[in-house]
Design a protein around this nucleic acid. Structure first.
Lengths: 345, 345
DNA sequence: CTGAAAGCGCTAACAA
DNA sequence: TTGTTAGCGCTTTCAG
């Protein structure tokens, strides 16, 4: 089955009628529509997307741009698979497909984005891993390509849509909780501060210290990628430091694996010798010993909401989703583990 | 900048010439080409993909279909990010883009695939997570959509292209190694046997047992998803079993986290009380205590090779890649850890 | 309710 | 070397 022409010839009717029947237009005889749908099914006809896109000016596809530090998969308990689930749930209500776009290693971030926008391969974009200063916001705004961001940025404007996690809130809550449990030397491990979540994490941390009457000590702020190796390295630096902290807040739970190991090598016990709280809840934390105290987020709901935000930016659906908020900050729940017991006197 | 028409008008030349200049055709005056390229750059013109696709009959895009149990991201040390790196490396040599396609939760596998094929949204597909009986092979073969598979299947035909990991080989090697280290009760943990890698793993395991003169015991074969929780559950079942194995071969390293925990809860030490070998090497295994003995694969090279196989199926590049093998099995290297020491007498 | 025909943006064949 | 033109497959007027 090649195209609508062949299908129309097969039925001895015009392509226009076939098209209208297939697209559910009202002005088609019920009997004709039935014949068309049956023939399409039988012959396996599906419209060529290029033809539709060219004619309609839209592709019916939304692109999610992931950077290499993001993570989908590894079971449904992870963050991105759930966000994607939520996104697809919202988008599929309107027949929109989601594709994931990964920037090739050799290509510059900006150039990749520019190409994706200009080629009109998708109708809208979802960007992630926002930075404090993020040129993608002005660029996309100027380009006219509808978009939403998973993560906010100083560069975003009031008309931009984004949903973000409450990193500031959990950093503050973690500090307060650790303070109440007797800790006075509380360290922080986050990503580079040009990642917006890193800046937020630091901000919440400082606010937490303030509210507890603790002074900020830059030596207690560690930087790392959010992986196992980063956690291990931070463990080493903690062991060497003069004023060894009694507690640490991690911004990525995978770090705990390396940190647990490094403490073990030094004959120390996580929890007992160093209290640990991490973002985000994941199976890893649940199966470590001691079980990780961490923060939980409803990632599917976040994804669904992000999808609705995106729909509200698309001309075809803007009206229907007019009352979707433009920006949203999603709260975390604390999941108590065994990695931050009250400090022994 | 709307289209090639506007760019041509701006330059007071015809759209045909603009098109030829942009596409690097030989028969364009050097001066003209320069003007066109500069104007396109200045005005930010990039060709509309729908127009090109419709005219040329190709989209310049390749789709990688991932199932939910696959995993990209989480740092560059993981499997899929590296495979994708390799793929993009091969594809970008010819200006092909890679997009990731995730089947929405509600849609059936077959229907999703059919839609992706029929809409001609991509020129070729890469499928993953192959099953022993996998209808996608005959379906795609029949459809005429070029494709390669990451993973083989009983259903694949000689003309189908695939690359796979040597699961059979590592299962056999793991058994042999454990036998040489004194183990006689060697268990296996793999996925459901309808996943092709599960069947291969089991086959290699049995072959290993045979060559060591051990008899196969179905009670020593455990089934699980490859996640932390699965490892934990297998730990419980091992502890309850009558003939407790002294060693186990895991087909997914994430399981070790749950298994380590379960053993710890029972007062047992991984390695000492239960020797463990796992597929695949990952940071997780490196930072566990004891360090995991595992198998390593060059995932980027695999991805690159898969990309070249795919290119050999595309009419435009078939000739150039004519000598690429149709099927390939990639070997693993053993990475010695501390989780399978010789058994104490 | 249906058919005929235009045209979305682009490239390729052909003419100049 | 460049301009002109047809047409990729589809949807959407408009006329009947």
């Amino acid at each position: 089955m090649k195209g609508i022409r062949q299908l129309a010839d097969h039925l001895s009717i015009s392509t226009g009628t076939v098209s209208r029947a297939l697209n559910g237009k009202a002005d088609v005889n019920a009997e004709t529509r039935k014949r068309v749908l049956e023939a399409a099914e039988k012959l396996g006809y599906v419209p060529n997307q290029a033809g539709r896109s060219l004619r309609q000016g839209v592709t019916g596809t939304v692109g999610l741009i992931l950077s290499q530090d993001a993570s989908i998969g590894a079971g449904s308990e992870n963050f991105f698979p759930r966000v994607i689930d939520g996104l697809q749930q919202a988008l599929s209500r309107h027949g929109l497909d989601l594709v994931l776009l990964l920037r090739p290693r050799g290509e510059k971030q900006d150039e990749f984005l520019r190409r994706m926008v200009a080629r009109r391969i998708v109708d809208a974009l979802i960007i992630t891993s926002t930075r404090v200063y993020d040129p993608r916001f002005p660029f996309l705004t100027k380009s006219g390509m509808p978009f939403v961001a998973l993560g906010r940025s100083e560069t975003s404007r009031p008309e931009n849509r984004w949903a973000d996690l409450d990193f500031e809130g959990i950093a503050e809550r973690a500090v307060t909780r650790l303070f109440e449990r007797g800790h006075r030397q509380i360290a922080l491990a986050g990503p580079r501060p040009d990642a917006n979540l890193g800046a937020l994490f630091l901000k919440g941390y400082r606010r937490g210290l303030d509210s507890c009457g603790l002074t900020f000590d830059p030596d207690l702020v560690f930087q790392s990628d959010g992986q196992e190796a980063g956690g291990y390295e931070i463990g080493s630096r903690i062991l060497e430091s003069k004023h060894r902290p009694s507690a640490i807040v991690l911004n990525a739970e995978m770090m705990s694996i390396g940190l647990y190991r490094r403490l073990g090598e030094a004959g120390l016990t996580p929890g007992k010798d160093l209290a640990i709280i991490a973002e985000r809840e994941s199976p890893v934390g649940r199966f470590l010993s001691p079980r990780l105290t961490c923060f939980r987020i409803d990632a599917a709901a976040l994804g669904c909401s992000l999808g609705e935000m995106l729909l509200s930016t698309l001309p075809a659906f803007a009206e229907q989703y007019a009352d979707v908020p433009r920006q949203q900050i999603w709260p975390f729940d604390l999941v108590e583990g065994e990695s931050d017991p009250p400090l022994q006197a």
